[in-house]
Design a protein around this nucleic acid. Structure first.
Lengths: 132, 132, 132, 132
DNA sequence: GTGGTCTAGACCACC
DNA sequence: GTGGTCTAGACCACG
């Protein structure tokens, strides 16, 4: 399931974090599901275990997953929070940047809106998957 | 005009690049307008001139500005290009990440759509400004 | 006739030099023809006279033109020379760079050869012109 | 492998860029090959690491090489692109200048054509090399 | 005065 | 160890 781009300037641990968040969002991972053990996943992706560890720590910090000593790591039950104003402003800045980039690529406002709506549909339409 | 966040992990030169792009997009800077000299801007923002230099070079590479030897740097006349498929996919990934982040902040799809539409309105509604 | 690109990173005086050389090569200027006075040309091109002066000096140094005090500047009668080995190697390097650039743009060796042959035809096919 | 001319008016970082492009073109460097580390190469060439850095960044921007965090920089797998009309015109101008220079050196059109064909043969005829 | 290049040396993130 | 960023300060070409 996880697809790492080693050439990306986005750190590998960040890619893992984002892809797990995306998987939960899409419904590929559901609350209570068990995530692969750090070493197993590291071996499969040919990544240093420390890197996976860092990703899991970040995900736990965000409340997306929970770790139970000796049992493993699981998708958290309640993963939505209310955002503070700083986070909201960061989100606005993120979208603003996307809109400007899109504009410089020649997309019209209408096309940008279409694109966003299309991406909004991706939520929850994917069935469960078996492995990573 | 430019507002640099020295604590951000987004490099300073990147912030300059993005803010100039945003200023042109908003209409605060128009084609033909002269940008501050490298050293002047560096002094005003208390940044090293090399950092501004790097930002200007990146902007010129993108076709947003043009430099004229011994005269200064100016906003380019035609700054839109057509995007290749790789850039478009990167844009989709950017928006996809924004949508997921928004979801984890508790925003509904409708609210996200609203937010995007609100941000799309910012284009061209700002009058000229005098200084940076 | 002369067409200056102020945005180019190629110095203006260099552009003047190259375009005069090109004009003679194409036949638009013939040996004995009189070139515009420095000040006249500077005014017409809205360039600093010093810049034109520098171009003319370079052209005279190359033997392409000759200046007669009080009379003006003229296209030299014999403008070909034999190149030393250093110049020849520089020429090879110039073409080598062009070939590599072309290759990275996706042109095949055959297409490159075609392009060069096409450009070789430009010689001498242009009639006289009246002014610059 | 790399041969820097400190007296040239061609910037050092440009020389590095061009020579790496040439090496890939000739086959001395193949896709996947690792380039020397920035600091290593800087030491060997007695150049400041920042200068090498700038060259590598330019090469990556052009898609000739890719950098992998913490691993190093490598020759990209697919390095050809399609050129836009502006780039093609620049290429034509480049060759046109070469032809004119050659003419002023006393070379006939036939000799120029021969020279280009000879240079076109250089592609891919060089075996692998071990060090820079 | 303008931008372009280079050096020396430092700090940081990632793996 | 790797590349990425930033600072301080210098020199040069161009107009």
């Amino acid at each position: 399931m996880l697809d790492i781009d080693f050439k990306s300037d986005n750190p590998i641990y960040q890619q893992v974090v984002e892809q797990v968040r995306a998987a939960v969002f899409k419904g590929a991972l559901s609350p209570g599901d068990r995530l692969p053990a750090v070493r197993k996943l590291a071996t499969k992706l040919t990544i240093n275990p420390n890197t996976i560890q860092k990703a899991y720590q970040e995900l736990e910090r965000q409340g997306v997953i929970v770790t139970v000593r000796g049992r493993g790591t699981f998708v958290a039950e309640d993963y939505t929070r209310t955002a503070d104003s700083g986070e909201l402003e960061a989100l606005r800045a993120h979208f603003r940047k996307g809109i400007i980039d899109a504009h410089y690529m020649g997309l019209s406002p209408g096309e940008i809106e279409e694109l966003v709506q299309e991406l909004l549909q991706e939520h929850g339409h994917t069935g469960r998957d078996e492995s990573c």
